[in-house]
Amino acid sequence: MLLLATIAILIGGIIEIFPMVMIESNVPRIESVKPYTPLELAGRDMYIREGCVGCHSQMVRPFRSETERYGEYSKSGEYIYDRPFLWGSKRTGPDLQRVGGKYPDSWHFNHMLEPQSISPGSIMPPYPWMIRDELSLDLLPKKIKALRTLGTPYPEGYEQIAIADAQKQAERVAGRLKKDGIEMDGLEKKEIIAMIAYLQRLGTDIKPKAQATK
């Protein structure tokens, strides 16, 4: 039995090397699906940190009742840059796979601050710290590098401009919020900006026209 166990562990080791070799797997690619921008990635990691997946799925099943409610059903090719996957297993709140572009940025801002002010009777908890706390971008270069190692096609050297890129996008989001009347000191540096950027990106890759290539 000991021997068996050792074999089992060895196999674990082999799996570790395999994906490097076989990253070009036969998951159907969709041309329009692109890697997350650094800001969206930061937002996504925040989505992970807060455990949003405990209540929100990101998987529209191919039923009329679901496509009617959420939009186009999910394709495997949409998830190729999702590390980890965020399909979820429980919908206490609605699916978010197609939430991008559904509401204005300011809707998300107010909703995260106090969900009940937007949706009376909602049981979503408030997330005031996302509006209070400043977003840390320090890890971004390392994250970009790690993801490239795993197969996400960020160009060589992109990690050096990732932070600047994120800040630029953050300013755009903050600008849109200001236009909607949300005034706040250092708004573009807050965590909520990354969260909004991520939520608005969700599901938009294939919205115009899905084109399967392989």
């Binding site: 674990g12 799996i15 570790e16 994906p19 797997s25 998951v27 990691d45 495997s76 949409e78 998830y79 190729i80 840059y81 999702d82 590390r83 980890p84 996957f85 399909w87 890890l139 390392k142 994250k143 790690a146 993801l147 190692t149 795993l150 197969g151 996400t152």
Partner: peptide, 21 residues
């Protein structure tokens, strides 16, 4: 738990999307 560490307390899984699922 096949993950690539980014920092002491952050890592990304080796597999993505459907495969990760």
């Amino acid at each position: 738990n096949l993950e690539l560490p980014v920092s002491a307390f952050k890592s990304y899984p080796v597999f993505a999307g459907v495969q990760d699922a």
